[in-house]
Design a protein around this nucleic acid. Structure first.
Lengths: 142, 142
DNA sequence: TCCGTATACTTGAGTCGTCAACCACTCCAG
DNA sequence: CTGGAGTGGTTGACGACTCAAGTATACGGA
C-alpha cells in the first residue's frame, strides 16, 4: 500500500508543528475540536473514540493527558451511570482557539499548495469512501 | 485532518489480516517486497528507511525482527564499511510469495471494491503529491 | 424478579515507532 | 596526512496505541 504511505509524513509534519507551538498532539487538538462542536461541549468516550478512530482505551489515555492539563473535565450522565462525559473546559476552549489559526494555516500550506480546490474536492470524496463501511466495519464521517 | 483519517482503519485492517495469516506486519511485508525488487535482493538500511517512510532506528528494529525470523540476513558492503546490507534470504522470499496472494487480494477488496480503475488512478496521482518535497522535505517515491 | 447479554469504561502488558545521543567510517580541504 | 564535516547505523528512553481482560451498569425477556 504504497498509496497510503504519503499520509504518514504529512500527518507527522502537522503534529510536530502543533506540539512545538502549543504542546498539543494532533489527537489532542482533534479531541478539543470534536468537543467544541458537540452539544454542550461534551461527548461520551465511546463517541470520541469513533470520531478519532481510536479504541476506547486509547481515548481513556488521551483524556488522561487533557484532564491533567485542565483542558477537559469529567461529568456524569444522569441517565446512565456507565458513561463519563468528557467536557471541554474554558481553558480547553481557549487553547483550541489559540491553536486553530496556526494549525489551519499549516494544513493549508500542506494541501492548498499542492492541490487546486477542485482536486481537493475530488480527493476528499475519494478518501471519504475509504472510511465507509465496507461490509461490517464501523461507520464514521470522513 | 479528518481527510486523512480514513487511512488508519484501512491500513489497520490490512495489517491485521497479514499478521493473522502470516505473522507479518505491513512493514515487514513491505520490507520483504522492497528487498525482493532490489538488485541482488539487498538494500542499505538508509534506503529501506526512505522506501518505508521510517526513521533509521525504526528500520533497525524492524530488521531485528525479520533477522530473528530468518527472513533477512546481513551483508557487508565491500566498498564502505559503514553500511550493512539487509539481504533477503531464501526463507524470506518464500514468505513473501506465500503472503502476497492474500495480501493483494485484501488490497483489492478494499480498493477495487470502492473505486473504479479511473478513480484509482486519480487517487494515486493526488496522493503521490502528498509525499513530494514540499519545501525541504525528504523526497520519496509514492 | 432475576438472569444473561450488551454497553461504557479502565487497566496491565506489550508493540511499534520516535528522538536524541552516540560510535564508526568516509572523504575532502588545507 | 590529518582534522573536520557528512553519512550509515545502533541504542536508551519514552510516547502513543492496541489487545485482552476485568469492572460496573443497563436492559430485555423467561
Amino acid at each position: 500500500m504504497r498509496l497510503l504511505r504519503g499520509h504518514a509524513a504529512t500527518t507527522r509534519a502537522l503534529n510536530a508543528d502543533l506540539v512545538a507551538s502549543h504542546g498539543l498532539t494532533i489527537n489532542d487538538y482533534e479531541t478539543l475540536l470534536l468537543l467544541a462542536r458537540a452539544e454542550d461541549g461534551r461527548l461520551r468516550r465511546v463517541d470520541l473514540a469513533e470520531g478519532l478512530l481510536l479504541t476506547p482505551s486509547g481515548v481513556t489515555r488521551l483524556l488522561n493527558g487533557l484532564e491533567a492539563a485542565g483542558l477537559v473535565g469529567k461529568a456524569e450522565c444522569p441517565g446512565d451511570a456507565r458513561v463519563t462525559y468528557a467536557v471541554l473546559t474554558e481553558a480547553g476552549r481557549e487553547k483550541l482557539e489559540e491553536a486553530s489559526p496556526g494549525h489551519l494555516a499549516a494544513i493549508r500550506t500542506l494541501f492548498e499548495e499542492r492541490f487546486s480546490p477542485a482536486e481537493l474536492d475530488v480527493l476528499a470524496g475519494l478518501l471519504a469512501r475509504l472510511s465507509e463501511a465496507g461490509e461490517d466495519e464501523e461507520t464514521c464521517s470522513a
